[in-house]
Design a protein around this nucleic acid. Structure first.
Lengths: 181, 181
DNA sequence: ATGGGCATGTAACGAGTTACATGATTTT
DNA sequence: AAAATCATGTAACTCGTTACATGCCCAT
């Protein structure tokens, strides 16, 4: 039995909370996780849903709605839960991967000017601050949410990450500014 | 003029240090950057090199070697440098993206047991410590390297990132252990 | 002598993205 | 009146990975 793509486990994981959800809903939830795992395009979600349906890891129900477009709701099956649990228990979890376009540019800083690099860092710090403000709002919602017991934990982890990024970016910014003058 | 894939800019960036390099060498250097940008497979590197050669963003020279397999060395052209600089100056730099399989599993923690999650975190912390030890070694090499003026900076950034990960992982570990008892 | 590193490349596959497509409702 | 949201799906494309393939040198 070959392993499924991560997108499948994300779908199963999202359905494991018990709520029947449409592909659209799943995509929305996946977007909330994008701070630590990028949300796949909706086309990809629909494709994986079909596959999981064929594998009987989930059930689908067609729902005709008035006033809104029809939708299809998915629920995880016991087999689906088993597959998800197996993935959870996997002993060799892949190391986190980062794609950090700013750091890449910083590494090639010699083809630019310090002034440009400073401006990059400033913009990055501003974005970190925006993200932190947003995370503070989310943090309130996730705390004491009995349906998502580990949500608050990952939100806090994220906030810690973004704060660390801001701190080190500021440090590098200070250094570049010092060197320039 | 449509934008190139990031792999191309990585190649151009690596060649921008001035050393003529083979595809093999480029791949090795790219691996050093994998802490903040995953290194593409060598097959991908060779494919991009062909494209960049056709676009005349680099020159290739065939070198017959004795005692070793023949190789092809690449050098960046002025046009290549121009394209790289344009990419460096791009005002809207994409936000960093993370794929964090551990955090994903933590979020779906309810389908597992606290004991399992604790074990995951312990392994992650151990890996962070290994990475930090490795980074300490690299840090020595990169400091005062006149050929790579910004290398030390990104290594330090990385070390800061891994330390932040270790700290927050430890915090979460403590919390789970407290809740369990 | 066996495994790892050097060096290059092709082939097949899979995952993921963007763009194309439709159409109703709700919000601004 | 226009834009955003709900809702689903296909098609074309690209990037990237893994596996296949070759062959020599060097260290253990």
């Amino acid at each position: 039995m070959k392993t499924l793509p991560t997108t499948s486990y994300i779908i199963l994981g999202i359905l494991s909370f018990g709520q029947p959800l449409s592909g659209y809903d799943i995509r929305k939830t996946a977007k909330e996780l994008s701070h630590f795992y990028p949300a796949p395009a909706h086309s990809q979600i629909y494709r994986e849903l079909r596959r999981l349906d064929e594998m009987e890891l989930l059930t689908s129900e067609y729902i005709a709605q008035e006033g809104k477009p029809d939708k299809q709701e998915f629920e995880i099956t016991p087999q689906g839960t088993a597959v998800l649990q197996q993935w959870m228990q996997q002993s060799d979890i892949d190391a986190p991967v980062r794609k950090h376009p700013l750091l890449l540019r910083l590494y090639f800083g010699h083809v630019s000017q310090p002034k440009e690099l400073i401006s990059m860092l400033e913009r990055y710090i501003a974005q970190c601050n925006k993200d932190l403000a947003q995370l503070a709002i989310v943090e309130e919602y996730t705390e004491n949410d009995p349906d998502h017991p580990y949500a608050a934990l990952v939100v806090e982890w994220n906030a810690h990450y973004v704060m660390a990024e801001r701190t080190i970016a500021q440090k590098m910014l200070d250094r570049l500014q010092r060197d320039q003058s």
